[in-house]
Design a protein around this nucleic acid. Structure first.
Length: 193
DNA sequence: CATATGATGGACT
DNA sequence: GTCCATCATATGG
């Protein structure tokens, strides 16, 4: 597996969201190493996208959206941390929300401290994913293209899959565009539609 | 300081 | 489908 390039992230957020499917999110912390396969994503823009965290002004938390592509952008909503990668070039706000993953490695560590032993309820949904992977705002802004605590990697010969697009989940004001992408038939996708 | 907000999740009808 | 606990942040007094 190899890290994704800066150029991979510095494209239109919808393209990045689409192509992040099937890639691997790698989390290294004190207790060990965890890997999930990304199965569900959503694209967000800046001005012009009322659902985006970059719709209004830049703050001390949402600043990564204006930065280079390939940085972590982590925001709290309803008591849950949500993990995004930034997309598009510096100065053009964009992000891709990682909504769900399929556990690949470090499952025991993800389960530790959780009530349920049910595998699908571990990483199915953006809040549950960050909880399992111990992702909080102290990782906001880290570079995902370099070796570190948080990385996204890909293989040359990953098996093909069917991509489904849909409207984004949970947003009050969505755009008239299907900006959510997921791997068809994957049991770890949070919602159908 | 007070309060509104939300890219959620879980319990319930 | 509905209801609501959650909590860091933004914003206004």
């Amino acid at each position: 597996m190899r890290l994704l390039s800066r150029a991979f992230y510095e494209r239109d957020p919808a393209i990045v969201a689409h192509e992040l499917l099937g890639k691997y999110l790698v989390r290294i912390c004190k207790e060990g190493r965890m890997v999930v396969r990304i199965v569900e994503t959503e694209a967000y823009y800046g001005r012009g996208d009322p659902a985006s965290r970059a719709y209004k002004r830049k703050t001390k938390l949402n600043w990564p959206m204006w930065e280079r592509g390939g940085l972590a952008f982590i925001y709290m909503v309803h008591g849950h941390w949500l993990f995004n990668t930034t997309a598009d070039k510096k100065g053009r706000p964009g992000a891709v929300l990682i909504r769900s993953g399929e556990p690949v490695e470090g499952i025991e560590l993800m389960t530790r401290g959780k009530r349920t032993g049910d595998l699908t309820s571990l990483t199915k949904g953006p809040g549950k994913l960050t909880s399992a992977l111990r992702i909080t705002s102290n990782l906001n802004g880290v570079d995902l293209t370099k070796p570190g605590e948080l990385m996204i990697m890909g293989n040359k010969n990953d098996p093909p899959f069917k991509v489904v697009s849909a409207y984004r989940v949970g947003v009050r004001k969505d755009l008239m565009r299907k900006l959510r992408f997921y791997i068809g038939g994957n049991p770890f996708v949070s919602k159908k539609g």
